[in-house]
Design a protein around this nucleic acid. Structure first.
Lengths: 216, 216
DNA sequence: ACGGAACGGAACGGTAGCGTTCCATTGTCT
DNA sequence: AGACAATGGAACGCTACCGTTCCGTTCCGT
């Protein structure tokens, strides 16, 4: 029976690329129920947070039996990790890398700001980070789906600016990436504050100056 | 009985400035026991983390009855908040503000690095941040004891540099403070990475450049 | 139309942990 | 010496919630 659940779990996961492998008889996991669970789970995440989320509460809010949840995912941990992965994959990084450094920087920072402004993220962002210390699967997922592509996008801009001479070739790329990402994350995620357009413009200028000086 | 506990709680809290107000008869909370509990609690915090810490585990590790814990603090939450407050107050900010900006920056950043390198902090830092969203008392304590004095120290350096002309008077102090603190926190707390001396020196130079450009 | 699996709902066993209470013992102040 | 409260230890009631199982019902694909 554990294998049964694993099979179904794999089916759901695969369903994103290939359509559901229908059982021969009638009766398949109903999309409506899956949707209701998903929505309820995110609402619960926003209200209770990651650590305090309970499967009973999700089922209750979705108007669904707990069995429906366990038919889809093998455990609470797997469900949350999977749902967040799906959500987060939507917001792809996007690389501008057109022309001037200042413009590229502002655009990337604006993109980051937009993503960090997501209320759900603001609510559970720090919890996901905290939980990563205890949950390797979550940590790996977050790195692969969130951290890595964003650091890559930042690096691409830096490398582009180096290539056409706006930044020195001796730039420390690792530190440069930190300088680019850290202030917004710090202010919006850790300080739970906003950043208006003025802040963003000044930040862009300051970051540009920092990058030009971040040589080893 | 709830009042009893509150009284004892206040007594313990006050004991940091004034010595324990002895009861008239014999028999007082024994310092040895308090110390054992404190040490056990921090060990548990480091191992299990904030959210997973249990009073039973603390008592077990301290070789102590749970009753001994509840004679000292009214609840788990109060105990942890109070213990962390005591721990964190030790590491005062310290303001250099002597002479050159570059030197002041490097010194402050080195101090921050030293404090962020504390293994316990690295372990539970993100959990404290996450828990702050749900625990107003913890959030306030962290702001008062941790955030505020450090931002104040940063601001003092910036203001000093403005006063003797190394930074422009139009500097955005709020953003400047972010620029000063964010990269280290980002790298050491969120990325769980270290920062060697080279990183710190380059960061100092880059931060100095960023500050000179962070005008509104 | 029909078969069968997914459905909502309820109940269950099991684990965990908080905060309380009791007790006989121990240690400390007067 | 004597009084008295703190002590370790154990047990308790309580709440919460995980993951499982069962049931009678509903819905879907053939």
């Amino acid at each position: 029976m554990e294998r049964d659940r694993s099979v179904r779990y794999a089916r759901i996961v695969a369903a994103e690329q290939k359509e559901t492998r229908t059982a021969t008889g009638g009766a398949v996991l109903r999309q409506r129920v899956t949707d209701a669970i998903t929505e309820a789970a995110f609402t619960e995440l926003a209200e209770a947070g990651y650590a305090r989320l309970s499967m009973e509460a999700v089922a209750r809010r979705a108007g669904v039996g707990k069995a429906a949840l366990y038919r889809r995912w093998p455990s609470k941990q797997a469900m949350i990790t999977e749902l967040i992965r799906g959500k987060v994959t939507d917001t792809l990084p996007h690389t501008p890398a057109t022309g001037a450094l200042h413009t590229d920087l502002r655009e990337l920072l604006a993109t980051f700001r937009g993503q960090l402004a997501n209320p759900l993220l603001a609510r559970i962002g720090t919890e996901l980070l905290a939980e990563s210390s205890h949950d390797g699967a979550l940590a790996e997922m977050l790195y692969t789906e969130v951290t890595a592509p964003r650091r890559l996008a930042a690096r691409a801009i830096l490398q582009g600016a180096i290539d056409h001479g706006e930044l020195p070739p001796t730039l420390d790329l690792e530190l440069g990436t930190d300088l680019l990402i850290a202030p917004l994350v710090f202010r919006m995620l850790l300080m739970q504050d906003r950043s208006d357009d003025d802040y963003l413009e000044t930040l862009t200028t300051a970051t540009e100056a920092a990058l030009k000086a971040a040589v080893r």
